[in-house]
Design a protein around this nucleic acid. Structure first.
Lengths: 347, 347
DNA sequence: CTGTTAGCGCATTCAC
DNA sequence: GTGAATGCGCTAACAG
């Protein structure tokens, strides 16, 4: 292994001190132009590369930030991470990614490891209801930023979308299309974002003078199977719904497939709207109405909130950013569907 | 900021030496049970946490590995990274992710930064034709592993799928379905994996005694628009094809949509097969035949190749792993399509 | 079993 | 302007 060259090596070669080399390399003003240039040149010649670890140990800054998400191979989190990465990388930060697989224990373990690794900040979409690990982070005075799935804590910043509004908009849209018997697939009511979407759904109904039927609200995990099963359940009701607002695109897809297989015409017999704007929603034969969560932007904003906090370590910043969700109306809910033109995508 | 407690702090409290504390913490055999337990207990009490940076500086090992991919928010790379992460995390390694956006300059910059950060290894799916940065990595004796998009270098390990075989299988399948006029959408012939798929396509034709028509081989980037455009081009031929093997699922989708809009019945009038097994291929109204690349497995294997190299730094290991691609036959190419059963997914 | 010493590579304070 | 000395937190070699 070619031994890495350090500032000492180049100091020795030039018969000066490591301190001088360090200064030259860091553009310290009090250094003669001659030596600076000499140092720079020989550093280049010797393939010198700064050891960031030493710098990190010295400065107490690792230039790494930790990002914790339930899982990485989903379009949404992949895009958020991409946004974070794109903002942080040019500023010299690296992103260390951890997955929790929705496990509370793994979340705790991830936080532990990131703290040990001396990350300069932690950005997380939490998959737990615990609070202790987060208090540890705060006590260490390490910037903590929640995105998407937040936890309400004093003094902690968060970047989320207005899930309530998303649920409201989607439901209102279905009502505007003439539907009144609207069911809701709620992924998991123990998770705040889904509760919020459900609240929005309910409020939209109330605002239009439509009664809320509890039997219209069904739990269905975020996959096709559960979406199909939910349809099965709903259609067995004495007074079945004619439309569904699903908090998950995958469940919405499953619902649509099940409805089709039973001969329902969508959107005329039955309308469906999803949530997340997963790529497939616009690829389908029947494109799916959904709510966009601006994942990339969420990541970028979260990253910038972190950067702000790094620049102002003295003052405590608490920033609660709430992005407005965008309803994307497509064929699955639009009774007068636009005809597709050749070689042109619908939205 | 609550000052971090170091081994010195706990040494002082116990009136012993930092070295002893270190030994106790690291389960060094030559230490009395009494002191070990005492140290452990007070460490706990004082909320001690090991500073990995110091350890890294001392040992020369950062316990970080760098992963470089063209982009992170695609299903394929997201899954590969997930695989890598799942293997490495339990071994105490962190994954630092970088994107090149297909830019050679960014790739170089990423490598630079990762080397500065003293990563213990670099796993990369390259998006360039350069070789110099990789030689730098090797010269530093840092494990380098290519996955998916490799570069052929002596002494360097790689984990890829047999793209040739994938192209062959898909094409052969179309032939078996009775098609002879088969076109090919080649994403980018400057990239090895696509050239290989194209070779497989050609060989399958040859093996069945079908002539290769150069006008049947069209460049189409990995998106729907280019897939549709390619269909337009192909159908204008004097003797248009009746089937397409596309090296990209997205282009295949675009092709299918364009064909449908022109009234073609798929798969009877025209068959299509894609590549990558993107999630949407099995969600579609018309499910799409494709080739699975076992992304998760690829990531896991790449990670394990890295781990092996770390364990045997003395001997030089060159491991070329080639995964067999799996052809997944779906409706877009199967003339006698299976009927979908309710609540049950096709594949 | 435990203490002493030294060094990983760098930046910074204090001298000169 | 530059050198000398120091410490970031930890482990390992050498003593005892």
């Amino acid at each position: 292994m070619a031994k890495k060259t350090t500032i000492y090596d180049i100091a020795k070669r030039l018969d000066i001190t490591a301190a001088t080399v360090s200064r030259a390399l860091n553009n310290n003003p009090k250094i003669s132009k001659a030596t600076r240039e000499l140092v720079l040149k020989t550093a280049e010649k010797m393939n010198y590369e700064q050891n960031k670890l030493a710098l990190a140990l010295k400065s107490g800054k690792s230039n790494n930030v930790g990002v914790i998400v339930p899982r990485i191979d989903s379009n949404f989190f992949g895009s958020v991470i991409r946004g974070i990465e794109e903002e942080l990388y040019p500023k010299g930060y690296h992103v260390i990614i951890c997955q929790t697989q929705e496990s509370e224990a793994k979340e705790t373990a991830n936080i532990d490891t990131l703290l040990n690794a001396q990350v300069d900040g932690i950005l997380i979409s939490t998959s737990s209801n615990q609070i202790k690990p987060f208090e540890r982070i705060i006590k260490k005075n390490i910037p903590l930023i929640f995105f998407d799935r937040k936890k309400s804590m004093d003094g902690v910043s968060s970047v989320v979308i207005n899930d309530y509004e998303g649920g409201y908009k989607a439901t209102k849209h279905l009502i505007d299309q003439g539907f009144t018997k609207i069911a809701h697939l709620c992924v998991d009511k123990t998770i705040e974002i889904y509760r919020e979407r459900c609240k929005g759904y309910k409020q939209a109904l109330i605002d239009s003078g439509i009664d809320i039927k509890e039997e219209y609200i069904v739990q269905a995990k975020s996959n096709r199977e559960e979406g199909a099963k939910a349809v099965d359940t709903l259609l067995k009701l004495e007074n079945p719904p004619k439309a569904i607002f699903s908090s998950s695109d995958f469940a919405a897809l499953g619902a649509i497939q099940e409805l089709k297989s039973r001969g329902y015409k969508i959107p005329n017999d039955f309308a469906v709207a999803g949530f997340s704007n997963e790529p497939f929603t616009k690829f389908m034969e029947l494109t799916i109405t959904t709510v966009d969560q601006s994942a990339l932007e969420m990541g970028k904003i979260a990253a910038n909130v972190f950067l702000e906090q790094m620049e102002n370590t003295d003052i405590k910043i608490e920033k609660k950013v709430i992005l407005e969700p965008e309803l994307i109306v497509r064929e699955s809910s639009l009774k007068t569907a636009p005809k597709k033109s050749k070689l042109k995508k619908v939205n």
